[in-house]
Amino acid sequence: MKRIAIGLYAAATVALLVWGYYQAIFVAPDEATMHEVQRIFYYHVPSAMSAFLFFAVSLVGSIGFLASRRNYPEHAQRFDAWALAGAEVGVVFCSVVLVTGPIWGRRAWGIWWTWDARLTTTLILWLIYVSYLLLRRFAAGPQVQTLAAVLGIFGAIDVPIVYMANRWWRTQHPAPVFFGGPDSGIKDPRMLAAFGWNVLAWIAWGVLILGIRYYVERQSQKALAREALEALNQV
């Protein structure tokens, strides 16, 4: 039953991705000033939203791990798997943002990159979570989960500071499309639909990968625990 549900969910996700692609490339109207290159927006912004969502999952996992590691070791292992899976999927989405952004910027601004508030913040966010993954790779033994959780919390605290610092420094990124003031928001309903479908599709896709990654991590945790138990029994 569970397998069928997962299979159905995966199929629905792929269907959503195809539908989102169709909406973004064929249905949504041409944008007046930026033309075709504006369509990258339907991938750039949903990826950014997904990245933030999955980094938030990672943060919750880190805090949960630290809170439960003494009294509920089994829960703590689950939290740790969520933290790792969230960080990995978040880094992938963040990479997509960092790749699609310059492609758009080259056409719209005439430059690939600028040290603007949101670009710099996203880049540093990416660096922080890559360093988190490096720590998980480098540090060996059972303490790695605790250390990674601590670094995850540090990284999350750093993000708003980075953002404020860069906002005071300089800002070139277009003003927020949503909640950015009276003139913000997408006016054309077809654009809004294409955007909405892509947000849904990419978040669904991310959740699927997150689930798979979580499952794989849980399996490797269980395998480690089994090995440790066998080693104990042999003594």
Partner: peptide, 22 residues
Amino acid sequence: LSIRSRNRELLLPLILFPIFMP
């Protein structure tokens, strides 16, 4: 934090610099 990891000398700048950037 990095003291008990393998190649700790390498790890410290890798995790310190991103956090220290602001």
